[in-house]
Design a protein around this nucleic acid. Sequence first.
DNA 1: CCTCCACTGGGTACGGCGTACGCATTTATG
DNA 2: CATAAATGCGTACGCCGTACCCAGTGGAGG
Lengths: 250, 250
Amino acid sequence: MTDAEYVSIWMRPERPARGPRPAYSRAQITEAAIRIADAEGLEAATMRRIAAEIGAGAMSLYRYVPSRDDLVMLMADRLMGEIDVEGVPSGDWRADLTRYAYEVRAMWLRHPWIATVQRSLPSLGPNQLLLIERLMGVLDAHVSIDENLALMAILNGYVEGAVREEISSAEELRRSGLSEPEWMARSYPYIQQLVKSGKYPIFTKIVMEARQPHLSRDDQFRYGLERVLDCIAAALPSTARREGREARGD
Amino acid sequence: MTDAEYVSIWMRPERPARGPRPAYSRAQITEAAIRIADAEGLEAATMRRIAAEIGAGAMSLYRYVPSRDDLVMLMADRLMGEIDVEGVPSGDWRADLTRYAYEVRAMWLRHPWIATVQRSLPSLGPNQLLLIERLMGVLDAHVSIDENLALMAILNGYVEGAVREEISSAEELRRSGLSEPEWMARSYPYIQQLVKSGKYPIFTKIVMEARQPHLSRDDQFRYGLERVLDCIAAALPSTARREGREARGD
DNA sequence: CCTCCACTGGGTACGGCGTACGCATTTATG
DNA sequence: CATAAATGCGTACGCCGTACCCAGTGGAGG
């Protein structure tokens, strides 16, 4: 960062030639960091803590990774590798996108701290890139690149937004360090006050619904997803719409 | 946080009774913090920096706000107050939701750091609550609360996802502290290498499209938004669909 | 009017963070 | 075998959020 020598983490080779054998590896460090983040949140994955996890000194990590921010990029891309899209595109676009959505949701639920990391163009790692190729390949033959981008923005937006909501309460609980009943007892008075004030009728309905839900979390997610897929179907040319149905034997 | 005295920031009164007149206020502190975050990012809005901005000592802020996390909640809710939904619901649901979407997008572009703050149930402030009432009020008469939640998840997901993408490059640039041409020069080799490798044909198309876009950012956003609104229209009972059109005189 | 004490602003200090720098050690290459 | 490159990592610096403390202020009770 000080002078002109910055290059993206993805272009920086892991191992040079000479010298003693490295005792650790980027993959090992990334894995340890993910383990800690899963258990205690991303903020707990400090350089010292990660180093301790693998039995190294804190400063040793910098032989493998230029900065913590870069390490977080590695972690995020490692997570993208968990999304299994083997065999996509398969010809049945609706099945492909459904599978993608559930894979993403499952991954976010396993690693909720991903919600706090920013993604952007130069942070695109190999796994993320491969995922883009696969995902956008699903509709590539049927629509223009602009349309494809817009439709995937809707799909991704829905999936990420929905799972963010699922995560948020659990994360707040974890961050507070309280047990669940304790945390409920803390939050309850505020919610209760809002409901009792009578000024927020719709919010009240939401709380009531959340207390005794008609649909499971999974069904809620599924319902919104089907709406999104209907929306995508409507934007496709009729030939492509048919294709999906035929592949599934409707 | 140490013992059982935690209460939500929204239930904590700003001013007690006795003693000398406070020299500052929550609103003033929140405003100063937002000003700094807008200019230099949320991470620049440290307690010391905010205090300096209003001419106070660092520790004085804690007379008004229990912690930095609570201050960030105040900041986020202040931002929700910028979203102008006066007169919503108006009877024309499509116009209402369009206006909401553009208001949210404009606010995010003014305060891109909002992308990094987590929202959750007990962090709901008065402005956020009012917004929920207004927004969900738009479709409340036409659909069940479950359906309403699902449809708003799609709308919000799309809007936030789309604006996140618009923001991300600009934020990365700011965080790097580089000038735009410098930053381009740094990022270019990596993107170039990906394109030249030939392994990412769709990513290449996206880069080409981004280089010479057919649609402006606004038109891209509008296109996706119209798709989302079509999707919502399809989920409404026919009576409600007609209502919107009549109110606009179609 | 005086006394009391809840409240104020804010200085000092602590533990923890990311990481710059330097040093002794190891090993592939000439 | 000498050299240079790369290793692990201890020390140290500047920043962060914030606990604790204290002197000063001004409304309430006598």
